[in-house]
Design a binder for these strands. Structure first.
Lengths: 126, 126
DNA sequence: CGGGATCCACATAGATACTG
DNA sequence: CAGTATCTATGTGGATCCCG
């Protein structure tokens, strides 16, 4: 999956298509901002402005761009309330939550190997 | 961790430093090529040229660049054999393997939510 | 073979301004 | 408040060349 290759021409064309799509999805999702957004939404529904402050350092533009992309891939749902001023909520779908679980894993990993990484860096710059 | 904020100025300065480093590590690692390299090395030690063909689509430059970064962060070990022609092996460290486990999760996720994503995309372009 | 260095096209992301 | 549009700069990545 994703990293596996299909060698022979006798391979099922449907499987090859699946693999290339898998790779495309992986490329979409495996980026800093997307994962941080997913992680932020893990705690529950958030508005645009709330996301903006939770995902530290993200620009207005990057946020909207990634939200569109995540919505397109069915990872989150966008609810617009036709009020003045407008209000838009973002919530993870089941697929989104499932991914969020693995992102949690990455965050825990960062925490666990913190010192290992710090000392590796010190060793490296010599 | 990573997404958590430290608010008050009374907060422990060491924790803030830890958080910003965590974020830095996350930003390093949460990118397409890095994760695909980690995933490829999950199966075992590989040479530069082997990695180049396993991680489909990666350029010479991106491969070396990411390998340096992953080595710097102590995720993999680089072994140079002083032969002619030279031979260089890359192997995951414990930290690398731990991360690889979570990347596996992402790959499985891609596989599991494949159809969900496909249909979400169809719905979106209307 | 592995990898550094350079050049450059192109995409990406920031800033700014404008709309419903 | 949320979002789109435009402009621009900067940085990222690909291609190419050379070196041990």
């Amino acid at each position: 999956m994703v990293t596996k290759q299909f060698s022979g021409p006798a391979e099922d064309a449907d499987l090859r298509r699946a693999d290339s799509l898998g790779r495309e999805i992986f490329s979409d999702v495996a980026n800093k901002w997307a994962l941080l957004i997913i992680e932020a939404l893990g705690e529950g529904t958030l508005r645009f402005s709330e996301l903006r402050s939770r995902v530290e350092g993200i620009s207005h533009k990057m946020l909207t761009q990634n939200l569109r992309m995540l919505e397109r891939n069915g990872l989150l749902e966008r609810t617009v309330y036709p009020t003045v001023p407008p209000r838009v909520d973002y919530t993870l779908t089941d697929a989104g939550h499932a991914l969020q679980a693995t992102v949690d894993g990455m965050c825990e990993w960062t925490y666990r190997y913190f010192h290992h990484i710090e000392s590796a860096r010190r060793r490296f710059e010599t």
